[in-house]
Write a protein that binds this DNA or RNA. Structure first.
Lengths: 205, 205
DNA sequence: CCAAAAGTAAACCATTTGGTCAAAACATTT
DNA sequence: AAATGTTTTGACCAAATGGTTTACTTTTGG
């Protein structure tokens, strides 16, 4: 303990990683403490030694997950570049973010759906109303005839849908298209390359 | 019991409705048998009287949910109308289908994510590879220059994303856009009207 | 080198939760 | 109206699961 910044012990990290993995796949209730322990290759008591309770462990995972994907939306939409470049960068960067954490969106949405109030304030602090400048930018561009005339909220949701849904809907997409193995990864790779053009084209006048 | 077709008793129906509601919101593990019973205003033992186990009850809910939204995708995409009209109808009709069962997509995707193999055969039977004709149609249209040159799989996923994601992402959308109360319903209503044009426009050359 | 602190393991505990059972209430048939 | 079958209830049970405690080991610091 000679460091000034308390860095989590190695087992503590292993636990957290395992917890993240299991919670992401199974959700709060679906996850078993024993399964997390097994996954981390440590004794179950250690979970409680480092993180008092399942609830506490879950909350850390939940919060970190939110932090990993929610502020990014706002950040990317508030970059100081042209509207077109901003949207292009958003699509690419956000796909990359989700690609690095492909289970997070479904995880968050499921938990949020079960209990919309848990962490509502926390989430609101990250994203609430912080897209207004972007919406205004779209509004302005529409007025100037550079962008299709459509409520900017709908355009924003279009962008989010096209970017995020493939990860959430992965199992269904795989079934419908008969993908297996690396097929889906290729599909995402292909998508990352062509989606920016598609989005820009779809909203340009 | 004088009917030829065994029709479920009233309590049996109440149970199923309640189970559907609770399973849809909480998932298999998140749902409590007691909660379902409370929700149906009946004694907990009745759940087991009519449906042996939680597992059995869940499976009925799961299967019915899949039946309600998966075959519809294939059906709408295989209608005998022009490509444009087919897509327009798909968007509108599928939004209406989901609107009538807004919790189903997230429910299915969450369960599918936990255990992709459960009912895999069942689901594959409903949708597996049955979109090939539609993909071929897109391919043909692209060759003739009527449709933008893009892998048809991507176009299909675009359509699905734009149609389904808003329901899955509802809580986040509400937070980001500051919606409350009926705001979201209006948003969906607006979307149902403008999405067909947007989709057609986005893939037309 | 030793004592105190931190980490680990195993056994154990308490509660939750899905599930059973027998008896009571209700309906149906003869 | 007795008998038979069906539905409902309440008490009860066993397994699963989150959590605790205790004892042992390892590490750390003086």
């Amino acid at each position: 303990m000679s460091d000034l910044l308390e860095q989590p012990s190695q087992t503590e990290q292993k636990i957290f990683e395992a917890a993240r993995h299991v919670f992401h796949r199974k959700g709060l209730e679906g996850a078993r403490m024993q399964e997390i322990a097994d996954n981390a290759n440590i004794h179950k008591s250690m979970l409680h030694y480092y993180y008092r309770s399942k609830e506490a462990l879950f909350q850390k995972v939940y919060q970190l997950s939110i932090m990993k994907v929610m502020p990014e939306i706002v950040n990317l939409l508030n970059e100081e570049v042209s509207l077109e470049l901003k949207i292009r960068k958003f699509v690419v960067k956000y796909i990359e973010t989700i690609q690095a954490n492909p289970d997070i969106p479904l995880f968050i949405l499921h938990e949020l759906n079960k209990d919309p109030n848990r962490f509502k304030q926390f989430i609101m602090g990250q994203v609430g109303k912080k897209v207004e400048p972007f919406l205004e930018e779209l509004r302005q561009a529409a007025k100037e005839g550079r962008v299709v005339d459509m409520p900017p909220e709908q355009i924003l949701v279009n962008i989010l849908s096209l970017t995020v849904f493939p990860f959430i809907g992965r199992p269904v997409i795989q079934m419908i298209l008969g993908y297996e193995g690396k097929d889906f990864d290729q599909f995402i790779e292909e998508r990352r390359l062509l989606l920016p053009d598609y989005v820009i084209n779809s909203i340009s006048k």
